[in-house]
Every structure is written in C-alpha cells, then in structure tokens.
Design a binder for these strands. Sequence first.
DNA 1: CGCGCTAATTTGTCACGGACAATTTTTGTA
DNA 2: TACAAAAATTGTCCGTGACAAATTAGCGCG
Lengths: 303, 303
Amino acid sequence: MKSRLFVASADIERETGFGRDQLRKWRQRFQFPPLEFTAEGKPGYSVNTVNRLRLVRRLLDGGFRPGYVVGKTLEELEKLHVAVSLSVPRVCDDESTSELIEQLKKADSAGFLKLLVKKRAKKTLLQFSRSVVAPLLKGLGDAWARGDVEIHHEHFCSFCIERYFHAQILRLKPKRGAPKILMALPPGEHHFLGLLMIEAVLAEQGAMTVSLGSDIPLNELKLAATSHNVDAVALSFSAAYPARDILPTLKHLRRLLPRRIPIWAGGATLAGIKNRPTGVSLFPELDGVVAALNDMVDQMSVR
Amino acid sequence: MKSRLFVASADIERETGFGRDQLRKWRQRFQFPPLEFTAEGKPGYSVNTVNRLRLVRRLLDGGFRPGYVVGKTLEELEKLHVAVSLSVPRVCDDESTSELIEQLKKADSAGFLKLLVKKRAKKTLLQFSRSVVAPLLKGLGDAWARGDVEIHHEHFCSFCIERYFHAQILRLKPKRGAPKILMALPPGEHHFLGLLMIEAVLAEQGAMTVSLGSDIPLNELKLAATSHNVDAVALSFSAAYPARDILPTLKHLRRLLPRRIPIWAGGATLAGIKNRPTGVSLFPELDGVVAALNDMVDQMSVR
DNA sequence: CGCGCTAATTTGTCACGGACAATTTTTGTA
DNA sequence: TACAAAAATTGTCCGTGACAAATTAGCGCG
C-alpha cells in the first residue's frame, strides 16, 4: 500500500517552510520531491515525502547545502541527521524544563498549566520568560528533533503559554504618561508567543500596549500607528520567518512610518543581522526591549 | 513624475491579498497589473497599482467579477466603489454596537476595552457573544464595506475580544467528569475568535477544553485527539474560509479520527451546507454547541 | 600557510504560458 | 417560465528559461 496522501500542494509551504517555486526547481534539478496524486487524482505530497522534506529542512538549517541533501532517501537523511543531532548534545539538561515536557507528553493539560503557574512563582514576566518559557521552547524543539514529542505537543504548549500571557497582560495597568507601543506580527508570521513575551515585559514596565495580532498589511500598520498615535511599533520575528525577508520587511515599514516613530524588532534570529536600517532597533534578547523602553521614558521626561 | 514608492513583487500578496499566480494571469488576460521596475531595475508595483488593486479587492468582495473590474482605471474603480458603498444600508441600528465602533474609530484602546467589559455586565459568555460580540463584528464588517473603518480597526477589535475571552476561559474551572473537548482551527484558517467563542461557552458549561490553536495538520489533530483521549473535536470555520474546502476537510478528518469521537464544526457559513458526513455535527449557531455538550453529558451519565 | 580577490558554480526568485478543474453565465429547448 | 446543456470565466498548478544573489573554488602574493 502506498503511503497515505496528506498534504495538498497548496499547504506544503506551511508544512515544510519551502516555497512552491523552490520545490519545483528541486524537482527539476534533483528529481525530488516527486509529483504525487491522491486516489481522486488531486496533486499532493505523501507523508513520506513530507517527512523527507522536514528532515531536509533540519539539515539545511544545520548548514548542509541543498545539492547535497535534497534527493537523498529517508534512511540516508536520518543517518545524517542522527550524526548531526548526536554531535549537538542535549544541553537542555534543565530539570525544570524536562519536568514540564514530561507533563506535556502525558497529555495532562490541567497539570501542565498548573505546573507552569507554579514555576512562575514570584517571578516577573521577564524573568519567567527567560528562565522558564524560552528554555522550555528550546527543549521542546530539541525533543521534537529527537522524535520525543509530536508537533501537537508543541502547539498545545505554545497555546497554553500564550493564553497565560494574554491573561497576565490584561490585568496589568499602564502607568500614566507611559509610552504607547503598537504590537504586531509582520505579514506572513503566525507565531504569537514571541510578540506576546515582548508585550508582556513592556506592559510590566508600565507601557501602554496596543496589539493588532497577525496578518496586518504593512500599510495598515502605518495607518494604525498614526491613528493610535503610538510612540513606537514593535514586531516579532520567529525562527520560522524567512531570514531573507526580515530586512526588506523592516525597510519597507520604515519607509511607510513617519520618522519620529521608532521600530523595535524582536526575535532570536535577529542576532545574525549586522546592518540595520536607521530608525530600526533589533532586539535578539528581551532585555533590550526593556532598555529601549526605559530610554524612551527618560527622553520623554527630559522634555 | 512617476510615483516613487514601490512594493516588491514578493510583498504584493501581503499587501493586497492576491497571489502572484493570480496577478500574473490577470496581467495576461486583462493587461493589468503591469510589470513595473524601480530605478534600480528591480521588479515591483507602484503605489498607484497597489491602490488600484486594493480597490479591486473591495469590489470583488462586493460581488463584482474580475473580468469586469480588473483593468479599470483608478477613477472608474472609485466611482463604482462609491456607488456600491452607498447601496450598503447603514444598518447600525444597534446603538450599543455603534457606540463600540465609535470607540474603536477614536482609537481609544483602553476605552474600548472598558466599554466592552461594561457591556458584559452580568451576562454569561454565551449571552455576551450573541448580543454584543456577534453584532459588533457584523457592524464592523458593514462599516468596512462603507469605508467607515479601516482593516486595522477590525484587527484591533478582534484582538481585544480574543484576549478577553482567553482570560475568561482561563478562570473557568471544569466540572468533575465533564467531557473533554479538543479545540482547533482547520488548516489554513487563522480567525480565532469563532473558535474562542465556542470554547468559552463550552468551558462555561463546565466542559474541559484543550486547544491547539491554528495551523495544525489534520493528522496531528488525530494524534492529539487520541493522546489527550478527548470526547469530541471542535473546529471553527470563519466566513473567510473557502466554502468548497469545508466538506473535504471535514470528511478527511472524519476518516482520520476513530468513530467514537464526534466532530463538531462551528461557524455561520455552515448554515448553507445541507448534507453533512455522518459523525460530523454542524453548528451555525452557538446554542447548538451547548445543546450538543448537554446531550453528551446526558449520554455519559446514563451509562 | 593565511589572506584577499576573482571566477565558477550553486541556488532561489520571478515571469511566462499551457493544462486543467471549478464555477458562473449564457444559451437552447421543452 | 423552468431547467439542462454549452460556453465563458477564473484560479491553481506545472514546467521551463532567465537572471541575480549567494556560495564555493581557484589562485596569486606576502
């Protein structure tokens, strides 16, 4: 029996992060991925193909070149992958993290949330994000790479944390006269958690935050920024966001926004970017955002 | 002088919502949008073109066909648009709704949230959803069609309500022995609010809900359903979801899930669907979900 | 052996047009 | 008028060629 068909052609980008054009070129150059069809004749990709593509993604991220890995069989890819993943030892020996992951694997949703709240303890949201959430996400990513957890575990985990942050942000009251920050995800980005963490630490410092969520065209972002009369616009780029799109997006937004409104961009991937446009600040770490906010408050009080 | 701002080819989808393939076909068939190049020779779209495309988007949403509107000049499009927007009746009859919309237009984010909470008053989440949220969203849609509000107003509104619901759900405690429901958006669907409303009324009835958010492949949904050992899977289809994809998606999921797990689908668009697959329940109204939950509770207590 | 510089190769993005299926409109007929 | 068949409209996907950007390899020189 053939492997079950599962991903429609249109969904392949969401599933693997590779664009259709890219995959088409690979098919022409490396004879992979093949064209496949469901029993009803619709084009699509088999589970096997999708898995191979996911492994290719991992290996490309690990530094391999497409010509070397695309076209290899699942076995070859896996061999390569274990070789690589073994060479990167599990540094996430954080006991706290593995405890949370265990709870997730047991599918104990209530228990996970309770444990999460307990880990929060007396921490600020900033401390909580750095010492609990970030390691947990990293540990989950590694666990997924090892095959220890499934994708839905990651989704569920993110969702729980997002909800918790939503609730926490809602109960924070902005200080009088504090800056007003517009929060949004860049177009095409759907990973909320990063943005929520930024919003949480900003709100915790007393800033007034206004969030638009995802799927905002950049020109709408500009309209919102002026109509809300905000003091800054904050974006968040996840690791899944195509690195080559980051600078163009930022430059584009920079052109649209009036110069007096600074752009703050968060996300660990920004660490690798050297030359930022003027008027755009990059914050690979959460602390940077807090510092930027405090700078802004100082500026405002000086006047 | 030529218009100066250019949108890169790759960004056009985010800006207008039209895909590259689609625009290419339009260029081939209607000689619009033209291929343009920046001073440096990069391909892109001029502001004028982007504006025309945005108007086309509005008119298509209003029921026109591409062959009729694509290729018209900006002036012709605007004339058409005012003609149409005048015909959209100002059915903001509900005073409560227009009050909220006014608050949104003033970009008074804190005031909007406060007003929202006030409207909640002593209502249950179900009553709140039906009497406040749903009319508000409908009113906003109409206002957008008339050009009274911008897209970012809608986004901001949805986001505020979503956050409120998140917080409310988090404070609800499930009853002992109540059914466990897995909540998720179908692949490609990104409108959370509908799903959140369903989750809210379920949680309000004492059900235990487990939400995975969006972008879950259907097979992962199945894995999650079995590993969490849920009693039902609930999905939500927004009006933006392509109607022709609804039944295939539901059938696909039905094949994946064990028969004992019912599928509940919510969303106003489901009202138009006549023949549902067995084992799938369609709920165009929120009440239906509550009824289904109560039925399930009865079933369980009988045993 | 390291360091820069240039050439060659690899890789990704875009445009184009053909094929095709889904949908809507028009036409023909009872 | 009603309803079925035919025609058109429309969007999505595919393969291919062109091209620019990124990467690697080659090479001379200190």
